[in-house]
């Protein structure tokens, strides 16, 4: 089975925990097309593992290979491109409370892809019409 993401000897420490290693030598294979569940108590490093895998947090040591590319060695702009391969649902929703519902939905279109607001609205309307149940 094709391997999609892999962490190798991943280790990360968080300053808030007085330098204690939250992750220490984590090796994890995430195969394409499979579900992987991480279970652990509070403070065991589940979120840190995810954030390191996505590139939101830089590990102190180790590699994170996504499609064979080590994202820990990428520049900021390159890492942003690598993040496009991921989607993440945050624990608390992480909705942008200063934006409207449709702006939250169209956030990537408007703010990352540079699509105009009018164009984003038109796409929303087209999708809405296409998905509306027929009478």
């Amino acid at each position: 089975m094709r391997r999609w993401a892999r962490t190798s000897n991943l280790s990360a420490s968080r300053k808030k925990l007085r330098g204690r290693f939250v992750l220490d030598g984590v090796d994890l294979d995430i195969p394409a097309g499979r579900s992987l569940v991480l279970i652990g108590g509070s403070g065991q490093g589940k979120s840190v593992t995810l954030k390191c895998t996505l590139g939101l947090m830089q590990p102190d040591a180790g590699q994170v290979l996504v499609d064979g590319e080590d994202i820990t060695a990428l520049k900021r702009s390159e890492r942003e491109a690598a993040m496009r391969k991921f989607g993440m649902l945050f624990q608390g929703g992480a909705l942008f409370d200063s934006l409207t519902v449709w702006e939250n939905i169209a956030f990537r279109l408007i703010y990352a892809d540079g699509v105009s607001r009018n164009e984003a609205r038109e796409r929303r309307d087209r999708n809405h019409e296409a998905r509306a149940p027929r009478a």
């Binding site: 954030k51 590139g55 939101l56 993440m88 945050f90 992480a94 942008f96 956030f107 990352a112």
Partner: peptide, 21 residues
């Protein structure tokens, strides 16, 4: 508030630079 509610992390995952935005 955006940091502790993970809105800044969400912004990064949506390929938007929090510094610029």
């Amino acid at each position: 508030t955006m940091r502790v509610t993970e809105q800044i992390d969400a912004m990064s995952t949506l390929s938007t630079d929090p510094f610029r935005f």
